[in-house]
Design a protein around this nucleic acid. Structure first.
Lengths: 199, 199
DNA sequence: CGTATTGAAACGGTATACCGAATGAACCTC
DNA sequence: GAGGTTCATTCGGTATACCGTTTCAATACG
């Protein structure tokens, strides 16, 4: 029997830990992530830490100084503008691609939608919103498009987390707008689908 | 005095060499790029080779097997379709962003355009075409958009190179279509620009 | 003849060590 | 006291070594 092909690489573990720390705000924006220090703290050598930092850079959570130092990304309002423009281009594109070719269960969308209706915190809404759009991206069938979107998702989560911690997100509006928008997308998908034979 | 901040890292050199080999077709699609072998061939250790391979993966020239082996990407027609769809989404977006905010010299575009008119090989046309669009991406001011596009550029070059080597590109049509399209884009930019005060 | 087994070679993930460059603070100069 | 210099420390880039896993071909088995 084949074992799992990936018996928990240390670099993946390191990336997960650092990712959680950054998204939770435990490590401040602009903070230096020195390889040696992180390695000692996580109990591994510098090599897997190095790879974890590269991975986090691809996710947009970390950036490198010209001399190769890894620092926690500090987002500016202009960064948010850029991300918003790109979401507004990529996500509708994914919808157009997914609509005629949708092969996966529409039930996954409905499940997400009802979970969003039951959501009780703004973090939950934003998390489910991102998940909803990721479902669209996956259904688009364009793996490169999904990759591009993923490379933005980390930064979006980073930004939303910081906004939330500074109490600049309003729950009620976010929830209603999100549910309405998702509802209409699901309807559009349903109208393009062949009639389901049964439950 | 400050020296250049980057005195030619071995990992960059390794990436450049491997990139050239892959784009020229010297290393066949699907070929294994074993770290040890490449390291010995280039006269460096495995570490910089490793980083070079990661960089090439971001560029889409290399992909990793589930067990971590790096292989030269083998493109399918579906891959080309995906790339085409994304170009068709990203490049017009960049044009729309660049048109009102264009700050850089329009002369750079004109220089590229006239070089394209003088081009005498299909490789030259495709290279100048990619460069033209990269100028637009840079003028858009959206650095994330430029990054996304860059991550596709490598794969496009890979594909075009292979098409060319199998004689599936026609020079004449490509040239005329490219020049016409670029011409109209430059005109659009010009009409949105303030009148130049002088030369 | 096709299929399972096994064993050696190859490969990737990680640890450790070394080195030059970058950094920042104490020090000196004016 | 402000600005430049020096020097010890820190940090990243690279080389080398070790180990478990994967791979693949030779071999044994049906």
């Amino acid at each position: 029997m084949n074992l799992a092909p990936n018996p928990a690489f240390r670099s993946d573990s390191a990336a997960s830990l650092l990712r959680a720390e950054i998204l939770s705000g435990a490590t401040a924006p602009g903070a230096l992530l020195a390889e040696s220090a992180v390695a000692k703290r996580l109990g591994v050598s510098r090599v897997p830490v190095r790879e974890a930092l590269f991975a986090l850079e691809r996710e947009g959570l970390v950036e490198f100084s010209p001399t190769g130092r890894a620092i926690v990304k500090a987002l500016t309002p202009q960064d948010f503008e850029e991300l918003f423009v790109l979401r507004l281009a990529l996500e509708p594109l994914a919808s157009r691609l997914a609509a005629p070719a949708l092969k996966v269960d529409i039930s996954r969308f409905e499940k997400n939608l009802s979970a969003t209706r039951r959501a009780r915190s703004v973090q939950e809404v934003t998390r489910l919103d991102l998940e909803f759009h990721q479902l669209i991206l996956e259904a688009s069938g364009n793996v490169r498009l999904l990759k591009l979107w993923r490379s933005l998702r980390g930064e979006l989560e980073l930004w939303l987390g910081r906004l939330h911690r500074s109490h600049q997100l309003q729950t009620k509006e976010t929830l209603n707008e999100t549910v309405d928008a998702h509802q209409s997308i699901v309807e559009a998908f349903r109208s393009h689908l062949p009639q389901p034979a049964n439950a």
